[in-house]
Simulated assay, not measured.
Amino acid sequence: MLLCKGVEVEMYTGTPTGDVVGLSDRIVRDLEGFVREPDSRNVEYTTAPLCCYDRLLCALLKPRQSLRQYLEQQGNYTIIPGSTLSLGGSERFYRSDPHNPYHSYIEETYGTKVVTASIHLNIGIPSTEILIQACRLVRVEAPLYLALSASSPFLDGQVTGYHSTRWQMFPKTPQHVPLFTSHPHFIAWTQEQLAQGKMQNVRHLWTSVRPNGDRRPYLLNRLELRICDLIIDPLQLLAVIALLEARITQLIENPQLDPLQLSSLSPEKMLELTDNNELAAAANSLDAQLSHWKDGRTIVAREWIEELYQEVFPVAKKHGFACFLSPLSKILQQGNQAQRWLKQYKQGLSIEQIMTESIETTAIQEQELESKICAKLLVA
């Protein structure tokens, strides 16, 4: 049986040459299903929780097609790939809702460090304690998903030296988040953070992975992976989701995979390694030297992902979604978005040329996918 999956997609809007332009007030006013972020240059949509991968693909594509058509009507605007303000604009915050006090707090506290675009993956897990257990496992492996998704090597027209500039600068909050041992532990910890003012509200937990639900921290029903940069390629996004689902399904079927049971390291040491792994993955993504949570051994991110792929493939095959894992091989062989862009840069293309080409290629690919896949589903 497949787990339910929902995706929160944050994207920039702007010109076909890659300049980001804030249009979220118009988009939210005129298009159903889109919500604003604190900065007007971002807009977000969320898919419904779906089990079927084909339907999830269409749920990802259809809002984008509506948004693309709308943006063209507004003045030849489009969707911008990447997870940072690649060509410029990080010196100023453009408020989407000047009267929202939480947005005021975000602008005053973090500035444009939070003006990034990302993908949040939500996987439904009905048992609360299994959900907390899954959060532990995904937390220590989250750097692998960052390595696969990195798409922000540029900021303000410069090469930053990071493959995920977004995660390198994003203000993780609170600064120390433990490996939660149980649901009551998560409740007590959240209450303590709110009382101390380290979190402004229950949503103000900005870490790589967190428990999520309709009434946090009490009613939880899904794991939310927040570390991924924007994966603009829908098929590659499905592959990353399939890897995550297969790993969680493997844990559900074999609870001994829990890091608290399987690792020879203390929880504090695992967290220390994981924090360092996140920074290493932000810098070098698939080529990063990481430390394995099981025993602390050094392993390259690409090799770790390959090991994980081989381990979970039988699980995905058993549950009928192994085919959706296949694009992972292409990412491992050809590089993620950031690595492909940096290769083009080294070959002599300017950042504006790279963004312009990527914008055009993405629009064509999405149109072809929607007409090929979604039309069949409607007929069926």
Rank of each mutant, 00 (worst) to 15 (best):
T78W: 10
R68Q: 15
G89I: 03
I80G: 02
T116R: 07
P81H: 11
E107Y: 07
E72F: 12
I123D: 04
E107W: 12
S127G: 04
G82M: 12
Y110H: 14
S127E: 02
L87N: 04
I119Q: 04
R68W: 14
S96E: 10
V115I: 09
S127N: 08
L121A: 03
S127Y: 02
R95N: 09
I119Y: 06
Q69D: 14
T116W: 12
S127C: 05
G89H: 07
H120W: 07
G82V: 10
T116C: 14
I79S: 01
G82D: 05
P101C: 04
H120M: 06
F93P: 06
V115Y: 04
V114H: 03
P126L: 03
T112F: 14
N76F: 15
L87M: 03
E72K: 15
Y102P: 00
S104P: 02
S127K: 01
Y105E: 00
Y70V: 13
Y70F: 15
G88K: 10
S96P: 13
H99Y: 13
Y105M: 01
G89S: 01
I79F: 05
Y77E: 02
I80K: 08
S83C: 12
F93Q: 01
R68A: 14
A117N: 11
I119V: 12
P98I: 14
I80W: 06
F93T: 01
H120D: 05
H103A: 01
P98S: 09
T112M: 10
L85T: 02
H103E: 00
G75K: 11
G111P: 06
S90A: 10
I123H: 02
I123T: 03
N76R: 15
P126M: 02
E108P: 02
T112E: 09
I80A: 01
S83A: 06
S118P: 13
G111H: 01
S118Q: 09
G111R: 05
F93R: 01
K113T: 15
D97L: 07
E91W: 14
V115Q: 04
G82T: 08
T84W: 11
D97C: 07
P126W: 03
Q73V: 05
L87S: 00
L71M: 09
L71F: 04
P81M: 11
Y77Q: 11
I79D: 00
Q74W: 00
H120V: 03
Q69P: 06
Y77T: 08
Q73T: 07
T109N: 00
P101E: 13
S104T: 10
S104H: 14
G89D: 01
I119T: 11
P126Q: 07
D97H: 07
D97G: 03
E108T: 08
P126D: 06
S90I: 02
Y77H: 14
S118E: 09
S86A: 15
I80M: 04
Q69K: 12
G75I: 05
E72W: 15
Y102I: 07
E107S: 01
I123Y: 10
